[in-house]
Design a protein around this nucleic acid. Structure first.
Length: 587
DNA sequence: GAGTTTGAAACT
DNA sequence: CAGTTTCAAACTC
C-alpha cells in the first residue's frame, strides 16, 4: 500500500457531502451507474450473465435518496460518462438477504453497511469492496475504500485481481448451464442461476445465510462442495423454510433451518433417509470421503434430480443430471424416477428439433424481413433451458447467418430474463451484484469498460424476450426488433415447436399405455421387473419416427445444412399460411 | 450488545 | 493445492 498506516487515517467514511461536487459523481448519479462487471474471460463466456433493462428496474427500485458517489480509480470521469447504463448485471437475491435494502412503506432503506475493522475495507472480506463500491455510511474502522485513498484502493484492487481475476465479477450468474433448480424460487423466469464458485459449507446445511448460495436465494449446484447440503430442489428441509405461509419471517426460517440442520425435520419424501444420514450411508457404500468433490456433486444431483425435476432431468439422454442420478442409484436402494420419455427423446431428436427450428426460423425471416433470423429459435432454445439446445442451434446454423445476424458468438452474453407472469417483483433478482445507488467502484467501472462490447443491451419487449442479438453497439433497432415480422416468425416457430411437443406427448402417452398394460400383466403373473418390454420404443422399430420428426422435415442432423434449408424451404414456405395461431399464452 | 459460529478470503 | 489463519457476517443468548 502506498499510503500511510491506517491509524492516521480517518476512521469513518467520507460522507456524501464531501464528495457531492465531484463531477463524476454527479454524472454517475444522473446516469444511475449500476452496471455490472461483465466477464471477458473464457470462464465467464460459458456463464452468460443475466442483464435486465434498467428501465424495467426503475419502477421497482427507486432511489430517491442521494446516490453515493460513483468514482472510478481506474476510469476517468470522462470514461464513466461513456458508460452505457442501460443494463445491469444482476443476480437473484432474496429481499431477506438484503435487509438494509428492503423497502418499508415504499421507502428504500439505506444500503448495507460494512463493519470492517481490520481489513481497511480493502479486501474481499469487506462487502463494499467486494461489490465494487465505495464504503458509504458504513460502520467500518480505518476505511480505505473511499475516494481519498484511491491509490491504496487501486493497489488493493490490483492485488485482489492478481489473486483472482474474477474477484469482482458476480458470484452468482445466470446461465443455461446452471442447474434447473433455481428458477422457481427466484422468480427470474427461465434464467437458471448458480453460484460460480459454489459454496463450501460444512455445518450450516446451506440453509443459513452463511451459505452464499442460500443467501443469494439460489440452490446449491454442481459447483458447490458443501457437506450435508439441504439447499436443493425438493429438499424437505428447505421447503419447510420457505413454504407454510411464513413468507419472510426470518425467525421462522431460522428456526426451521436449525431444525433442518439438526435433523428434526423428516426426510424427503423421495429419499429414504435424511440427507446427512443418506450421505453417510453413501460413504459406507462407496467408500468415498466427503472431501471428494465428485462425490459432493454426485450427492447434489442425486438429491436434486430425483425430486420435482426428475422428469426433466431424465428426459434428456445426455443430461449429466440424469446420468448422475441413474448411475448413483445403482448402489442404493432408492427408487429412481425414470421418465417415460427417457428412451423416446434421443439426442438425434434434439438435433432434429433444433435443426427444424433454426432452419424454419431462418426461412421465415428470409421471407419476412431478413435480420435476426435466428432470434426466435434461440429464444425457444433458451426457453428449453438446456445449453445443448443452444449449442446445437449454433452448430446447425447456416454460416451465412453467423456472419450476418450479429456479432454474438457461441457462449457470449445474451439476455434471457423472462419476467414471471404477474409477478409484481419481477426484478427481485436485480441488484444483488451491483448494489443500487451505491458508488460503483473504480475497478468495477474499469472492468466494465472492457466488457461493454459483450453486453447485449436489453430492450424490453412485450413478450418478455428481450433484445436477442442486440449488442451495445447496435442498440438502436433493438426496440424495433420484435416487429410484426418477428412476431410472425415467432408464431411460426412456436407453432412448429408446439407440434413437436404434441408429438412428444403422444409418444409419451403411447408408452405410458404400454407400461400400464405391461405392469398389469407382470403384476398378475408375479414376474420380474417390467423392463425389457418397455425399454425402448424407438429401437427395434427402425422405421419409427422420433417425436420431433414430423414427417415433413426429416433431417440427418450432423450432415447437411444446405439440404436442410432446401427441405424446409420446400415445405415451410407452402405451409406458412397453414399455421394456426398459437395460443395467446405463447405470445 | 456481547459472544459464538460460520465460511469465504487470505495466507503459508 | 491443501492446511491454517484471518476476517466479517450471521447467528445466539
Amino acid at each position: 500500500m502506498g499510503e500511510s498506516e491506517g491509524s492516521e487515517f480517518p476512521p469513518k467514511k467520507q460522507q456524501q457531502s464531501e464528495t457531492a461536487d465531484f463531477p463524476a459523481k454527479k454524472l454517475a448519479r444522473q446516469l444511475d451507474f449500476t452496471q455490472g462487471v461483465l466477464p471477458d474471460h473464457p470462464q465467464s463466456q460459458l456463464s452468460p450473465v443475466v442483464v435486465t433493462p434498467l428501465s424495467a428496474q426503475c419502477q421497482l427500485q427507486p432511489h430517491p435518496q442521494p446516490q453515493p458517489q460513483v468514482v472510478s480509480i481506474l476510469a476517468s470521469p470522462q470514461q464513466q460518462t461513456q458508460q452505457q447504463p442501460a443494463v445491469r448485471v444482476v443476480k437473484p437475491e432474496s429481499p431477506k438477504s438484503r435487509p438494509n435494502a428492503e423497502l418499508k412503506d415504499g421507502t428504500p432503506k439505506k444500503q448495507k453497511q460494512c463493519n470492517c475493522k481490520h481489513s481497511r475495507c480493502l479486501k474481499l472480506y469487506c462487502e463494499c469492496f467486494a461489490s465494487g463500491t465505495y464504503c458509504d455510511g458504513c460502520n467500518c474502522v480505518n476505511c480505505y475504500n473511499n475516494v481519498e485513498n484511491e491509490a491504496a484502493r487501486r493497489e488493493a484492487v490490483e492485488a485482489t485481481l492478481e489473486r483472482n481475476p474474477n474477484a469482482f465479477r458476480p458470484k452468482i450468474a445466470s446461465s443455461p448451464h446452471g442447474t434447473r433448480d433455481s428458477r422457481e424460487e427466484t422468480g427470474e423466469g427461465l434464467v437458471f442461476v448458480k453460484h460460480n464458485k459454489g459454496c463450501h459449507c460444512k455445518k450450516s446445511g446451506c440453509l443459513k445465510k452463511y451459505c452464499e448460495c442460500f443467501q443469494a436465494n439460489i440452490l446449491c449446484s454442481e459447483n458447490c462442495k458443501c457437506m450435508d447440503c439441504k439447499n436443493f430442489e425438493g429438499s424437505e428441509e428447505r421447503q419447510a423454510l420457505f413454504h407454510g405461509d411464513h413468507g419472510n419471517n426470518m425467525a421462522y426460517i431460522q428456526q426451521a433451518a436449525n431444525a433442518a440442520i439438526t435433523g428434526a425435520i423428516g426426510s424427503s419424501g423421495y429419499a429414504s433417509l435424511p440427507v446427512s444420514r443418506k450421505r453417510k450411508c453413501q460413504e459406507l457404500f462407496f467408500g468415498k470421503t466427503v472431501k471428494d468433490p465428485s462425490f459432493h456433486r454426485l450427492g447434489h444431483f442425486q438429491q436434486a434430480s430425483h425430486i420435482r425435476h426428475a422428469a426433466l432431468s431424465s428426459l434428456l439422454p445426455s443430461n449429466p443430471v440424469a446420468r448422475a442420478g441413474n448411475t448413483t442409484t445403482l448402489g442404493s436402494s432408492k427408487i429412481t424416477y425414470r421418465s417415460l420419455l427417457a428412451d423416446i427423446i434421443q439426442s438425434q431428436d434434439l438435433k432434429e428439433l433444433c435443426s427444424v427450428l433454426v432452419v424454419l426460423s431462418g426461412e421465415v425471416a428470409k421471407t419476412l424481413s431478413g435480420t435476426h433470423q435466428l432470434l426466435i429459435a434461440e429464444a425457444v432454445a433458451v426457453e428449453l433451458a438446456d445449453p445443448r439446445f443452444l449449442s446445437l442451434l449454433w452448430r446447425y446454423k447456416p454460416k451465412k447467418f453467423n456472419k450476418k445476424t450479429s456479432r454474438r458468438s457461441k457462449g457470449t452474453l445474451f439476455l434471457i430474463h423472462l419476467p414471471k407472469k404477474g409477478a409484481p417483483d419481477d426484478c427481485s433478482l436485480d441488484s444483488a451484484d451491483m448494489p443500487k445507488g451505491r458508488p460503483m467502484s473504480p475497478g468495477t467501472l474499469a472492468l466494465m469498460c472492457d466488457e461493454q462490447d459483450t453486453i447485449f443491451m436489453a430492450a424490453a419487449s412485450p413478450n418478455g424476450l428481450m433484445g436477442y442479438g442486440c449488442n451495445s453497439s447496435s442498440q438502436l433497432p433493438c426496440r424495433q426488433g420484435m416487429t410484426e415480422a418477428h412476431a410472425e416468425q415467432e408464431r411460426i416457430v412456436l407453432t412448429k415447436f408446439r407440434d413437436c411437443l404434441n408429438r412428444l406427448i403422444t409418444f409419451g402417452e403411447i408408452k405410458e399405455t404400454k407400461c400400464s398394460s405391461l405392469a398389469r400383466t407382470e403384476l398378475g403373473n408375479e414376474k420380474g421387473p417390467p423392463s425389457k418390454g418397455i425399454a425402448n420404443t424407438r429401437t427395434g422399430t427402425g422405421s419409427q419416427q422420433g417425436p420431433f420428426s414430423n414427417g415433413v422435415v426429416k433431417v440427418p442432423p450432423a450432415a447437411k445444412p444446405p439440404q436442410m434449408v432446401t427441405s424446409i424451404v420446400a415445405t415451410s414456405s407452402s405451409d406458412l399460411q397453414k399455421f394456426p395461431k398459437p395460443p395467446t399464452k405463447w405470445r
